[in-house]
Simulated assay, not measured.
Amino acid sequence: MHDPDNETHEVDPAATTLSAVVPLSMAGSRLDVIAAGLFPEFSRSKLSEWIKSGRLTLDGATARPRDTLTGGEVLALDAQLDTQTHALPQDIPLDIVYEDADIFVVNKPAGLVVHPGAGNPDGTLVNALLFRDPELAKLPRAGIVHRLDKDTSGVMVVARTMPALNKLTEMLAERDVHRQYLAVVLGALVSGGTADQPIDRHPRDRLRMTVREDGRHAVTHYRLRERFRNHTLLECRLETGRTHQIRVHMQYARHPIVGDPLYGGALRLPKGATDELIEQLRGFKRQALHAEVLSFAHPVHGGEIRCEAPVPADMKALIDALRDDEQQFQERESRR
């Protein structure tokens, strides 16, 4: 005997057509509310749009989002997604750390812009992803759910399907994605800590973010990975994901990230620094920030995904020079 309360929607992968019988437990609810419950892989606004356009039908007929259902009705959804991202696919090399049918995890190099925009109409990560998987054009932002600044390197996850995109977006909002960064900052810290200051757009300089009382909640946890004479290698973990968050928080703590063109301030060379360290500090023209680890539950099957990106060559050379400078300083001190 057919039991509407045990119904799940059926999927025809080739036709992207879905159908579901409205369970009796949902009787008395609006069509758009029921559709959101039966097809959670799509946003409520998209489902409402499809109801109005006739691509989501009720017992074979068009209906209104506000119509009240009694249970037992059949919903049919033509879930063919229109093109959402119109960027040009470009054959740009990508370092894919992990991939399956639902997600990519990419190790983004420093210098690669994530989204096309003013001044960067192409040559971006989005262009590279569309070349690798043209179906990403059907997803908002080509499946990108979080981004890295142009000159920040490291791992980021990209959704390849709408269900994965919606789930990853939800997980990020719920802080269920572990994001760990490495940063070289000015100053020899004696301990780690937590930066818990709200962040928003700078009132005068629209390119910058700043700590503001009326800003959005932002929390960064950091701990010492390695300490040098006048610098520290920090391990930073994001609890929230505001624009430029780590960069702003470290500037606010008076330990700006080395090389940061927006928040780093003037170049400061340690007294008695080695020639190699001076060369590295003068030549490091981007923020020394690297997204080292990304871990999360897979958005479809729930298994643990943990991806790491090795420290890029320029940042490794900087750390090596700091380490060598520290060693030479300790040797000089021991001879005194």
Rank of each mutant, 00 (worst) to 15 (best):
R204G: 04
I103V: 15
H221N: 09
S295Q: 00
V293S: 05
L172Q: 06
F42C: 00
H178K: 08
E99Q: 03
S29C: 10
P256Q: 02
T240K: 02
D95K: 07
T152D: 07
L233R: 07
Q197H: 13
P310H: 08
P4F: 11
A288T: 07
D196M: 05
I103D: 10
E326G: 10
F228H: 03
E239G: 07
G193P: 04
S45C: 09
R132M: 07
M162H: 12
P121N: 12
V219D: 00
R335H: 15
D3N: 15
F104A: 04
H86W: 10
T232G: 10
P65S: 08
P256V: 05
S153N: 08
E49T: 08
H217S: 10
P299K: 05
T85K: 11
N230P: 12
R208W: 08
E331R: 12
E331W: 01
E279C: 14
H2N: 13
Q287N: 10
V248C: 02
A159P: 04
L94Q: 09
A164F: 00
V97N: 01
A159L: 05
P140R: 02
D149P: 08
Q180P: 08
A15F: 08
G28R: 11
R64Q: 13
I34C: 01
P140N: 11
G28E: 13
V300E: 01
L18Y: 11
F329R: 13
G272Q: 10
T210N: 00
Q328W: 04
Q287C: 06
K150T: 12
M162L: 09
R286S: 12
M315S: 11
A79Y: 04
Q330P: 02
R141Y: 06
E10C: 12
